[in-house]
Amino acid sequence: MTSARIIVDVQGVAKHYGAGETRVDALRSVDLRVHAGEVVALLGPSGSGKTTLLNVIGCIIDPSAGKLSLDGEAVFDGHWLRRDLRRLRLEKIGFIFQAHNLLPFLTARENVAVALHLAGMKADAANARAQELLDYLEVGHRATVKPALLSGGEAQRVAIARALANSPRIILADEPTAALDSKRAGIVMDLLRKLATEQDACIIAVTHDEKIFDRFDKLFHLRDGVLVDDAGG
């Protein structure tokens, strides 16, 4: 699979917060490549920089140094090469949050449709596609329910549907299974795997969940802001 196209290419990325006495080096020169079709995990103790790395890849925070390419396009090289990062996110990146962050005032279907709508799809088409995605994730029957009434697992699947809405090449997930029992965690992992294969996407997930380690193609270990070699890779 390593012969496949490189989707995420992180080179020498560093990120520090603050300055002087309070300076925290969250990442120090990280190199990471993820290919199309791959499902990889970011592991490491708390504070090791996993979320920071995920956010850098998601173009949510500015790296302090290094290079970043996404789907063959150089997006960061000392500074952002694109101004409309939100457009980039809309088109190429899907996020699955730990706290699934559904908009409370929209129904499950609308939560998915809003991402399609933002990408320019007409309301009817967006609703139809949202329903399709929800059906695919087996929460179609909860389409008209607001997030507050969804179970943790249902909400998680709606959030996944939203992340997939615009068929992103990159899916970033911060502890996607933390709120789920092991059976549901397995289902979610199967699903992510299916996506990676079917849509030629790559999936990067932060996890502490040892039960699902064997579901990943590669495990990347972070320690104090550096990737360390690991036999699991």
Partner: peptide, 16 residues
């Protein structure tokens, strides 16, 4: 604010 941050995260432009 948190919902607005979510909207930004999924790619909503400022005008939305």
């Amino acid at each position: 604010l948190k919902q607005i941050a979510t909207l930004k995260l999924i790619g909503a432009p400022d005008r939305t």
